[in-house]
Amino acid sequence: MTGFRVGVMNPLVATRPTAEWLTRVDYLGALGARVDSFWVPDHLNSLLPRSLWTPKYCGAAKLVPSIGADLEPWTMLGHLAARNRLGRLRLGVGVTDTGRRNPAVTAQAAATLHLLTRGRAILGISTGEREGNEPYGVDWSKPVARFEEAMATIRALWDSGGELVNRDSPFFPLRNAVFDLPPYRGRWPEIWIGAHSPRMLRATGRYADAYFPFVPHRPVDYQHRLDVVRTAASDAGRDPMSIIPAVWLPVVTGRSRDDVDEALDSEVIKSYALIAPDEVFARHGARHPLGAGFSGAPDILPHTMNEETALSQAAQVPSTLLREIFLNGTPDEVIEQAAQWRDRGVRYIVLDNLSFSQPSLRRGLASVQPFNKIARALKRL
């Protein structure tokens, strides 16, 4: 891959006046900004506390009644592909879950979308989080081991050529399994893996077409982890430079620095930082509100937090931490911050506009123009 590429992430929640309204608006905005890809997450509920998603704390609650009303990603991407024949954006799930989704079904969904879109599907994948597994009766023990077996299963099915597949596995044994969907023009969807821990980074080197972590970490951390991924790829006999260095970054922007600072100080956006692990809080002289050593996104259960608890925990988030884990500021400031990631090896940024999560609906809506300006400018970075 040459040049710098940009994607846009949509929250994929049911909205007013129609369930898909915000997703469609974001998709059309991505087309207008001439980005390379459009992404949706895969959740059964939000990583934000539902108790704070009310008009009192978030203006967007007037358009998005529940932040936990998550739509199903593969269905939505198929819907977008069918309704937007002229747009040639690549379509990705960022990221799906190897806990509650059987890898054979995931392999089928991604291959189907790839065929229907004539080669534009991307399979973003990782271990998932406790909040999308444990409450629904899915075993949350050994998520990384389960992930490794899921990746091996997907590759075995895709590489089977329609022959029967038998494979021993503690999680996903295959017994005369058949996978007869063809690849599109000889190519399967790219696999983009979200990874942070050493074991997951090594798995990324073995299986991924792209290294695609989510926040929170710093550009210098990214560079070190990318080196681990590439070393693992080399050890597995793969070309380490063929792995696309990508990252998914949330953005808080606005028309002025004052507007951005006011948004960063809002309860909902501060509560988003609870997905950071305790080690990130420690860098800012604080302890995670959920306790020393808390791992952040993998183990948080935000839908169980009442309003009082969520407000108390959000109040403990240092302002400096917010400025570390989010791209934030006016378009020029955000582009300058993004350049730091480029300088550490990133060649593909997927942007997620969190600016809607502030108290002012007017300023949230006004953030669309600077956000799209950022997306267009990053194409030239």
Results as ranks from 00 to 15, higher is better:
residue 263 A to K: 14
residue 86 L to E: 15
residue 59 G to R: 08
residue 219 P to A: 07
residue 277 P to R: 11
residue 35 V to N: 00
residue 10 N to W: 04
residue 139 D to M: 15
residue 26 D to L: 14
residue 342 R to H: 13
residue 28 L to V: 15
residue 147 F to Y: 12
residue 7 G to E: 06
residue 285 G to S: 10
residue 212 F to S: 02
residue 221 D to Y: 06
residue 194 G to E: 02
residue 237 G to N: 11
residue 363 R to N: 11
residue 58 C to P: 01
residue 247 V to Q: 06
residue 237 G to T: 12
residue 372 N to E: 04
residue 1 M to I: 12
residue 266 S to F: 12
residue 301 L to W: 13
residue 338 A to R: 03
residue 110 A to H: 04
residue 185 R to F: 08
residue 175 R to Y: 06
residue 133 N to H: 14
residue 187 R to S: 11
residue 330 T to E: 04
residue 163 E to T: 14
residue 284 H to D: 03
residue 266 S to A: 11
residue 333 E to K: 03
residue 152 A to C: 08
residue 343 D to H: 12
residue 300 I to P: 00
residue 140 W to D: 02
residue 186 G to T: 07
residue 197 S to W: 08
residue 288 H to M: 09
residue 2 T to V: 13
residue 196 H to V: 09
residue 328 N to G: 02
residue 357 S to L: 15
residue 204 T to N: 06
residue 18 T to D: 12
residue 62 K to R: 15
residue 374 I to A: 02
residue 140 W to M: 14
residue 1 M to V: 14
residue 210 A to C: 04
residue 314 A to R: 00
residue 333 E to R: 05
residue 4 F to W: 10
residue 286 A to W: 04
residue 190 E to I: 05
residue 59 G to I: 12
residue 223 Q to C: 10
residue 162 G to M: 14
residue 166 N to D: 14
residue 289 P to G: 09
residue 190 E to P: 02
residue 321 L to C: 01
residue 27 Y to P: 00
residue 82 A to G: 08
residue 310 A to Q: 02
residue 34 R to S: 03
residue 49 P to S: 09
residue 358 Q to V: 13
residue 290 L to M: 15
residue 329 G to C: 07
residue 219 P to H: 09
residue 10 N to Y: 05
residue 350 V to C: 11
residue 348 Y to D: 03
residue 236 A to C: 09
residue 42 D to G: 09
residue 348 Y to G: 01
residue 204 T to W: 04
residue 122 I to E: 03
residue 254 G to Q: 05
residue 199 R to Y: 03
residue 340 Q to E: 13
residue 318 P to R: 09
residue 11 P to T: 06
residue 218 R to I: 07
residue 334 V to W: 00
residue 319 S to G: 12
residue 238 R to I: 05
residue 14 A to G: 10
residue 62 K to G: 08
residue 124 G to D: 01
residue 293 G to L: 07
residue 91 L to N: 02
residue 360 S to V: 10
residue 288 H to Y: 05
residue 139 D to C: 15
residue 224 H to A: 15
residue 54 T to K: 14
residue 3 G to M: 13
residue 331 P to N: 06
residue 37 S to C: 06
residue 329 G to T: 01
residue 88 R to V: 13
residue 6 V to N: 06
residue 367 S to W: 04
residue 194 G to F: 04
residue 258 D to C: 03
residue 145 A to W: 10
residue 84 N to C: 08
residue 72 E to G: 11
residue 7 G to V: 02
residue 367 S to V: 08
residue 345 G to P: 03
residue 177 A to I: 07
